[in-house]
Design a protein around this nucleic acid. Structure first.
Lengths: 206, 206
DNA sequence: GTCTATAGGTGGATAGAC
DNA sequence: GTCTATCCACCTATAGAC
């Protein structure tokens, strides 16, 4: 209870939105969990959607800024190593998964929303800069590869990344009990190795 | 209106669940779209959840049975080609994307649900058989590769597959306008090439 | 900034006629 | 199998006291 009401509301909303979905999360549950009054959401965020937007912007801006910052460390090199670029995308995500485990689930839900909702929610998330920045870096890391091909495969990588943590800490069900988390470092290595190989394979075919 | 009410309800629910989410889809909207009476859902499926379960089982059983059938054509070979195994997983999915475009979006939403809901919804979907069957096939295609590694990378492949079509027919937003669909065949090739390379890369590291 | 009270509307589900 | 009418629990949002 050290934080102020606004922060407690964001935290409670994140947990409930992630677990039940936005529509199924009732303002009453959110305010109860945040130990705030039922009217607090409207006072601080204007509406339920305002709360969702504030939360999304907060997390996604932070994530994408961290990604771009880590990517900027490779900006001097003419041809950065592919694995370095992928790490700049993946590692900040994993840090977010540690700091805000619920948000990764919420993110998955938000991706499934219709365009209008996504547009509203992602508007201030630095998404365009991130796509552009990593697109340029990939093109430098894999010169000669067709750009649309690189973008698609980066999209695969991003989906794999989301899917890897979406079930955390229980990925068992979707995998029929065959998967177990073996630590952040191992997962990062696995993802980097997997997607680097997949991205390099398009050099030959492009 | 050739189909009976039960089928029209399934179709309407699929479209609305996919577009708005399950919780946000009102029984009244579903029945209106299906040109059925408000009481029809409870008559045919018992409840809203019953409707969701019937729909999920119908689609996922069909999908997984088609996958296993295509995989069975490789069962005689000692070491099936990796690309053949991946195609047996991916191609039936693409056919489902064509036949029931809405369900792919719904599937994404369902994956984000808490374990209890997923368990109920996926219970009769032949999920366990599919995981087991493809696990064995992958192990034969890539002898020597550690099994947990193969399962994780197959999970990446599955996530990439979902992500590829989740935004269809409009993947533009999440990608900042950089992606465009260039046909089913091209997407299948891209996915197979990408994930085959990623899976093979674990042979060296295993 | 926080609270109570309530307006104003909508949800899933059912009873019972046809 | 299909329909109308209705129950009632519950929702978001707001007004207005403190």
């Amino acid at each position: 209870m050290a934080q102020d009401t606004r922060e407690r509301l964001l935290e409670a909303a994140e947990a409930l939105f992630a677990e039940r979905g936005v529509a199924a999360s009732k303002l009453r549950d959110i305010t109860r969990r945040a130990q705030a009054n039922i009217a607090a959401v409207n006072y601080h965020f204007g509406s339920k959607l305002g709360l969702l937007q504030a939360l999304s912007t907060l997390r996604l801006r932070g994530l994408n800024e961290a990604r771009l910052q880590q990517l900027a460390q490779t900006a001097d090199e003419d041809a950065p190593r592919l694995e370095t670029v992928l790490r700049a995308y993946i590692e900040p995500t994993v840090r977010l998964c540690r700091a805000c485990p619920a948000f990764v689930k919420l993110w998955r839900r938000l991706e499934a929303e219709p365009s209008a909702v996504r547009e509203a929610v992602f508007r201030d998330a630095r998404l365009a800069e991130t796509v552009a920045g990593f697109g340029r870096a990939l093109a430098r890391a894999l010169p000669g590869a067709p750009l649309p091909e690189l973008f698609w495969r980066m999209h695969f990588t991003s989906s794999a990344l989301d899917g890897a943590w979406a079930g955390w800490p229980d990925p068992a069900l979707v995998s029929g009990g065959t998967l177990a988390f073996d630590g952040d470092a191992a997962m990062v290595e696995r993802l980097v190795e997997f997607s680097a190989a997949g991205l390099r394979a398009c050099r030959a075919s492009g």
